[in-house]
């Protein structure tokens, strides 16, 4: 028995009863080819993914624990962390509400222009982050279309918190809707229709039926949305003005430190963001493993 049959045996392990036709003996490459392809893949990942990630933590610790703690607890860093959390705390819930509304409209109803609407929701994905920031500067900046009006009324958007929030909402706009729409479409509307015939009110239908059905995709969407919201750089860089302690988010703080040749401090703050990324990935994988099983179970019935 050659190495090549190993995956097939694993398949059979998962489904021991009477499904021999899932075994795929003929369709496997020789062990040498497999080893080669696996090596190529892992080398590629090492070079482009793993080394950068490791280097963040190595560089962050280069000056020792005291320097690391100093870098992430100095007032500007703390202010940046606070601001990042604040921006995400506003932008993410906004996108959750809009994403659920959009998914409800798109998945549960048929109307003209639906495909256009889906494309428009996805639009921010194909817009450069820098342009996402730029559009708000053109609109609300000192020389922007609404600049004079805002100035006359003492409202600050660009180089202030509202600008950061708007730019963040723009770049994370599609995340929640994108996860919810396919899931809700796949589930169909029969559950909701059943609940309505049983006399449930619309809001009760939504909270008791729809939301529990899609809770994992919703969580998944929120996870990705949050990761992007906290890590966004380009869009925020354009609208922030990078005023330390005021409009400086964590990614911007990293840039400033790096440009001031404070590499270790920059990597120290970066390591917090990398930690966030790892937590996001871990939760995401956990969800996929759980969620994947649930989907498989649903298919079996």
């Amino acid at each position: 028995m050659s190495e090549a049959t190993l995956p097939d045996r694993a398949t059979n392990l998962a489904a021991p009863a009477a499904r021999p036709r899932t075994a795929r003996r003929t369709g496997a490459e020789g062990p040498v080819v497999q080893l080669l392809l696996i090596t190529v893949s892992l080398a590629f990942l090492l070079l482009f993914l793993l080394l950068p990630l490791i280097s963040v933590f190595v560089e962050a610790g280069a000056r020792g624990w005291a320097a690391y703690r100093e870098a992430i607890t100095e007032p500007d860093a703390v202010a940046a962390i606070r601001l990042t959390l604040l921006v995400a705390a506003i932008a993410v819930p906004f996108n959750v509400v809009v994403g659920i509304a959009a998914a409800w409209a798109i998945a549960k109803f048929e109307f003209t222009g639906k495909n256009l609407l889906i494309s428009l929701i996805d639009l921010p994905f194909s817009v450069s982050p820098v342009i996402s920031g730029l559009v708000y500067v053109l609109l609300f900046g000192a020389q922007g279309y609404l600049g004079p009006f805002l100035k006359a009324n003492g409202i600050e958007i660009i180089f202030a918190l509202p600008g950061l929030i708007l730019a963040t909402i723009f770049v994370t706009f599609p995340f929640v809707a994108r996860e919810l729409i396919p899931h809700m479409q796949a589930l169909g509307s029969t559950d909701e229709e059943a609940a309505l015939t049983l006399g449930a009110s619309p809001w009760r239908v939504f909270f008791a039926i729809t939301l529990p059905n899609v809770k994992w995709s919703l969580f998944y969407g929120i996870l990705l949305c949050n990761a992007r919201a906290m890590g966004e750089f380009g869009a925020v860089a354009v609208v922030s003005g990078k005023i330390r302690g005021l409009t400086n988010t964590m990614p911007l703080h990293v840039e400033i430190l790096y440009n001031e040749y404070m590499g270790a401090a920059a990597f120290a703050v970066a390591s917090l963001l990398a930690g966030l990324a790892l937590v996001t990935l871990a939760l995401k994988s956990l969800l996929e493993w759980r969620y994947g099983d649930a989907i498989a179970a649903a298919r079996r019935h």
Partner: peptide
Amino acid sequence: DKRFLAFQAL
């Protein structure tokens, strides 16, 4: 004779 792990197919 043919067996898939614990399952005797033939």
